[in-house]
Amino acid sequence: MRLIVHNMMSCNIKGVVNNFPLRIEAEKVIEKEVDFNPDFLRHMFAKIEWKALVDGARSLGYTELPDHAPDTAALESDESFLRQFHHALLELHLEEGSLVCPETGRKFSVNKGIPNMLLHEDEV
């Protein structure tokens, strides 16, 4: 699971309010190189919850991202920032571990890189 997915997911147990971002418990993290596509990154940047990405990256052991999202001009001029964003968003993989709901502590397991977001019968 890459952080782009982590940034989209919340805990959707019925009645839970404080459901994002899910805390990452990492057991195995791997890195895989992905083709650098600036257009895609610029499109995604506007959709990303920055703090969730920064915290997610830290829990996977990557600490280079700035605390605060730079303004969009940096996407045009600052290639090294775009590379860091690319690396955090697409190249870090949580292979084994869990996503934990901040409110209920419900763990969604990530196994072989696939997050299992299906709820139990008594949670829907």
């Binding site: 699971m1 890459r2 782009i4 997915v5 940034n7 989209m8 997911m9 919340s10 805990c11 959707n12 459901n19 994002f20 971002p21 895989k32 992905v34 083709d35 995604m44 959709k47 919850e49 697409l90 890189g113 696939i114 997050p115 299992n116 977001m117 299906l118 709820l119 829907v124």
Partner: peptide
Amino acid sequence: LPMPVALLRMDNNLPPWRSGLKEI
């Protein structure tokens, strides 16, 4: 071919998208 950016298991009837996520 490049791998999918994500594969996940979820229920399309009860999707876990965070609130506020749209037009992605």
